[in-house]
Design a protein around this nucleic acid. Sequence first.
DNA 1: GTCTATACGCTGATAGAC
DNA 2: GTCTATCAGCGTATAGAC
Lengths: 216, 216
Amino acid sequence: MPYLTQACPDPEPLDCRILTAALDLFVEQGYHNVSVHEIQKRADVSIGSIYKHFGGKEGVADALYTHILGELDQLIDGIMDRHDNAADRCQAIIESLFQHTETHRNIIAYIFHTKHADFLPQQAHICESSPFLKMRAIVEQGIQRGELRQTAPWVATACIFGGMARLIQLRLDGSITAPLMQYRNDMLDVLWNGMVSDKLAQEIPERSRPVTKARS
Amino acid sequence: MPYLTQACPDPEPLDCRILTAALDLFVEQGYHNVSVHEIQKRADVSIGSIYKHFGGKEGVADALYTHILGELDQLIDGIMDRHDNAADRCQAIIESLFQHTETHRNIIAYIFHTKHADFLPQQAHICESSPFLKMRAIVEQGIQRGELRQTAPWVATACIFGGMARLIQLRLDGSITAPLMQYRNDMLDVLWNGMVSDKLAQEIPERSRPVTKARS
DNA sequence: GTCTATACGCTGATAGAC
DNA sequence: GTCTATCAGCGTATAGAC
């Protein structure tokens, strides 16, 4: 599986050229604003090859989606092997995706900055894909083990990875101009310790921590 | 401004019918999968009217976008008037948008679940729109006043509203089946107090709170 | 102001040569 | 397996009647 994130063999196989060209175009212009002719032109192949290999534009997008999710899945697996608790695993995922945002921009953009349901209706929604289910499972297990706060798994997952995804999107948009790794410490600090300042929480805890729900 | 969120006058004006029909279709099928003929059919008007009022499909989408952002802007303004500190303001915004997700589903979906850059390239990105700038300003002011933890404003905003947005998206997808208001307490609890469980934080703080960055 | 009928361009897709 | 030439359908937009 030498495509996309890994260097391709020399000479670069034809279907790899098609996929990388399509990835770049889809991210730059949006799937519906890209024609098969544009992919053909940028990949420097013929239209026939695209239809022979992938069956059309949607087939290319689908192969791209499946392949990138597979690579992401491997990434998560590796992290789960190397770390044994929820906090470390989440941290490693965040760091890894922050890094990838800088080094493999379009791959990250295709996952986090694209509305796949608009052109891949038969694909399950991305939140139900294997790597994202694993992320939720990591959080869920962390809650069960008592490593993370007792709370609804949906909420915990949304706060941890939703915040991460937001930063990635802002970086992809150009709103954030600095590499994301500069925000790593702040990000983890906020996630684990919460948003209310320590000072204020001590002074007027009933004001800044108005949530009355019992905690385990 | 009686459109969309407020009840329309009787008889319903023609351009309101066009906007609501387009909103529903865009959310259900995605902008590029909707033809002008479908809008015309569902709104029960002629094609000519659509081009006369809005100049075409993109004009409809643009008017919809501007109008909804205006309503959201008013919502934020009202919240800023009624609350004077960052935590209360953020809570009110989260509650309000959770509510709207249940009662005005498609309006929320058009804001949070649509990639506008794909069909409104001349519009500024949504994160730079007035209501979203105000959300960030609320957080930034909260940090300056010492109400919120000293951290990068991007990070704080991303964690607070990125987590919220993630939950909203999961609800819109159908992954979350219960009304969002059920998660309100958990959401605020996690945001203000952080993810690491109190128990574990006391036992092995250097493990669960590995971030060494100094705090004010 | 509203509607109907029509035209034009583009895009996805195919057939068949090499 | 790869390529070129061509087709058919759709979707936007307009012109002109009422």
